[in-house]
Nucleic acid binder design. Structure first.
Length: 225
DNA sequence: AAACAACGCAACCGCGCATCT
DNA sequence: CAGATGCGCGGTTGCGTTGTT
């Protein structure tokens, strides 16, 4: 079954949005609200495909967007969430109000990825980087002892007490329980009920009843930071 | 000042999923 | 139940900007 194109490409503009197009889109959404992206371009008098309009609105025109630099705290949150969720940019964005998935994805690829690599951390697995087995003749034990010595030499000043190893541990094993699993919603956990624990049983962190889970709805269990 | 490289970000593309008919 | 439709997501591309030689 072939899939019909999302819009008639012959009569749509592509590429950068003009000021006029932005204004039309904003005016239309202010008047009619979001939704029905497929029919929106025609109704708003735009020669764009619906997907393009949606993307422009979500990533650039939305009034609640927080533009500007990411803070160190933002970086930490993103790294921690990525270590658990992987490239689920929309979920990560959900924890950073005012940020979009696209923005976080770009930020990850341009800044954080490099930052982790420079710290000797694999940005995909969040584990310390290792040379490939084929280019290594030393045993792992020998190498790690050697690494340790080199780290000691490299970090032999008082201002940076933590060795690279410590730093790796810190990044790889932040204060997160990574053993995520599927389970019943917390309301249906009798043992925990007895103990007065509720909260996010997907990550099994046993949040005290009454305290906020990481997501507003019980269906959206996620990571506690 | 010009040429080139590297970087950063906006936008596009294709796919998967949910819902509708 | 199968096909059609629409939306949302992640990966990728293209282009403008900035830095370097």
């Amino acid at each position: 079954m072939g899939r019909s194109p999302c819009c008639e490409k012959a009569h749509t503009n592509k590429g950068a949005w003009t000021k006029e197009e932005d204004e039309r889109l904003v005016a239309y959404i202010r008047a009619h609200g979001e939704g029905c992206w497929r029919s929106l371009p025609k109704a708003a008098g735009l020669l764009r495909c619906g997907k393009s309009c949606r993307l422009r609105w979500i990533n650039y025109l939305r009034p609640d967007l927080k533009r500007g630099n990411f803070t160190e705290e933002d970086d930490d949150i993103i790294i921690k969430l990525h270590s658990v969720l992987g490239n689920k940019w929309s979920l990560i964005a959900g924890k950073l109000p005012g940020r979009t998935d696209n923005e976080i994805k770009n930020y990850w690829n341009t800044h954080i990825r490099r930052k982790l690599l420079s710290r000797g951390i694999d940005p995909v697995t969040h584990c310390p980087l290792r040379p490939s087995p084929t280019d290594c003749t030393e045993s792992l034990d020998k190498r790690s002892a050697k690494e340790q010595r080199e780290n000691n030499i490299n970090n032999n000043n008082d201002s940076s007490r933590s060795s690279n190893e410590d730093e790796r541990r810190q990044w790889r094993c932040p204060d997160l329980n990574l053993e995520l699993c599927l389970s019943m919603p917390f309301e249906q956990q009798p043992e925990a009920e007895k103990e007065g624990l509720g909260g996010c049983f997907s990550c099994r962190l046993g949040v005290k009843r009454g305290s906020d889970c990481c997501f507003s709805s019980p269906e959206q269990h996620s990571v506690h930071l």
